[in-house]
Design a protein around this nucleic acid. Structure first.
Lengths: 341, 341
DNA sequence: ATGAAAGCGCTAACAT
DNA sequence: ATGTTAGCGCTTTCAT
């Protein structure tokens, strides 16, 4: 900035002003400054500005995985909410691991974000302490924790899984299995499994047909091999509920390979309303958790907490998921019957 | 840091030392400092340290999209390469748009990354100038540009598409169509289409069966509807090459819905070796561009350029993609025949 | 092993 | 409309 100022013959302060608002700077001076910037190839140093302003302009965001359409949609919702307020997201990946989340949160906080948005409502004790004492707004998403750290934008994974069980039971299924991931990692997956078990018991059904298909995130291929195991162990099952649509698609392909007719012999349901659930043959019943709305809601919670939009006392925004019934659980003829006039 | 120092009765300098190496600080003093840090909930301010050190410890990375298994794998490879050297990736998304890439690159450079890794070898003129004059190592990936800015870790998208055409022609296909995205966005997709056209001409075949299915990234659903359009316009096609496996999977499902037998009536091939290509029924022929190797190679290029590992004069690392022949283009009986002893 | 001084590049606050 | 002063929270350098 010194160099630019010297070249134009003004003080660095004028350069600073010209580079920001541009108001209260002589139009010609400003022109000359912008030209000098271009000629010198000067690039503004946000590091120094951040230190001076005690504002970094970014919000830390932790998501379990970079390659997941659901979390990607949440991030898109976030980014859109932040854009016009000049906030950027600083993303970090936990790989579905609370220990990594703790490390990541600590690293992110050192970069002085103005708020932090985490996926899930369960953390290591130290991570929770870090969040509580961070002195910035905290938003937990994709969950509805009993004792949130700060703000919450999410839904009950257990209740959503229950919706799917209810649907399967209502359409006549009784011997329903659940394919999820190994325990101790993905707490949202664990909540879905717990919701499955609770709903099955509520209906007086056997809730012990549980398969752990691999380390979260469970893949399509793991979903397929788990289905084979499942069918060997419990050949009489009439429905499979999966922790995600990706696993469900793996199950669907395994049924295709084995010549099992869906939904007649076996119904399959997933979770997340991924694209594959819509386009697969047959299309799959699932639950849409509205990931982008979670993102938009989280951005709004942050903006409110920072006083950038009108404040509000609400600390929890529940985004109610929606059941999507498709041909993998209900015969097409039945699902396309128009409602009576 | 002042607060911690006061509490322990030392100077901030000692705190600074204790928080980093810990060497050349009395063990008891160090203990007391760490305890005070914990009690006060002090969090190190990386912003200030970055300014003073003129090192931020992060590398800027632009990828077209969060939510893409290929780029996610590249990022994983990068992160692994960086981890032990204490470098972090600062990710930005261009949404397959060169104008957005320009904005993003400028924003990222303000944060003073130590290197920048961009996806693709085509940029707006200003973006190219920004990269050239950034004064930090630049790596272009997922491409093999004729005039690279700096380092290159990638492959020829055109040549890879040619491999697929060659395979289809060798297995007897002649009336091959290509489904890609609308022009002017995804330059890697455009290169694949160009490679398709060039290879078809090389074989003396009609290279005009081209469909633009939507704005990149083209979805599975867009792949499915493009396939319907394709089959109406050119009912005689015997193969479809798609810009990605996701599009190819859409095409596959449309064929299933229409009762078209694969590969007998129509062969389908994709690009990227996404998981869906392996698990689909039938599994799909594709090309594996080894995304994680691109990430590892890019990390290595950065580390070498920064002098963190042994230097090298190589500026271009070609990661040669691999053709994966599966049942969507070749009858199973044929593909499983064991090699003669 | 520890401390004091100086400064990284920017900008709020107060002149003029 | 522009300039001067001071300082954000660290760490390198040079003492002691």
């Amino acid at each position: 900035m010194q160099d630019v100022a010297r070249r134009v013959g003004v003080s660095p302060m004028t350069v600073s002003r010209a580079l920001r608002d541009g108001t209260s700077v002589n139009a010609q001076t400003r022109e000359a400054i912008l030209q000098a910037v271009d000629e010198l190839g000067y690039v503004f140093d946000a590091t120094a500005a951040n230190l001076r302003n005690q504002r970094t302009g970014f919000v830390a965001v932790t998501i379990p995985s970079i390659n997941n359409a659901n979390f990607a949609d949440t991030v898109r919702g976030l980014s859109e909410g932040f854009r016009e307020h000049g906030l950027q997201s600083l993303l970090g990946y936990t790989d579905y691991d609370m220990a990594q989340e703790e490390v990541l949160v600590e690293q992110l906080l050192r970069r002085r974000p103005e708020a932090i948005i985490v996926t899930g409502g369960r953390h290591t004790p130290r991570c929770r302490r870090l969040l509580e004492s961070a002195g910035i707004p905290v938003v937990e998403t994709w969950d509805l924790p009993a004792e949130p750290v700060g703000h919450v934008v999410g839904f009950s994974n257990a209740a959503a899984a229950g919706m799917l069980v209810d649907h399967l039971v209502e359409t006549g299924r009784k011997r329903i299995a659940f394919i999820g991931g190994e325990e101790g990692r993905d707490s949202r997956g664990a909540d879905r499994r717990a919701g499955f078990v609770a709903a099955m018991r509520r209906h007086g059904l056997d809730a012990t047909r549980l398969v752990a298909a691999g380390v979260p995130p469970v893949s399509m291929i793991e979903g397929a091999s788990a289905t084979r195991v499942l069918l060997e162990q419990w050949p009489d099952i009439d429905a499979i509920l999966c922790v995600s649509d990706l696993v469900a698609f793996g199950a669907l392909t395994e049924c295709l390979r084995l010549g099992i007719v869906m939904p007649d012999q076996i119904a399959i349901a997933g979770f997340g309303n991924y694209e594959v659930a819509e386009v697969s043959v047959p299309p799959m019943t699932t639950v849409d958790p509205f990931p982008e709305a979670i993102g938009r809601g989280s951005a709004e919670a942050v903006l409110r907490a920072l006083g950038l939009v009108e404040r509000s006392d609400a600390h929890t925004a529940e985004i109610v998921p929606q059941l999507l019934v498709r041909a993998s659980t209900v015969p097409v003829a039945r699902s396309v019957v128009p409602a009576p006039a």
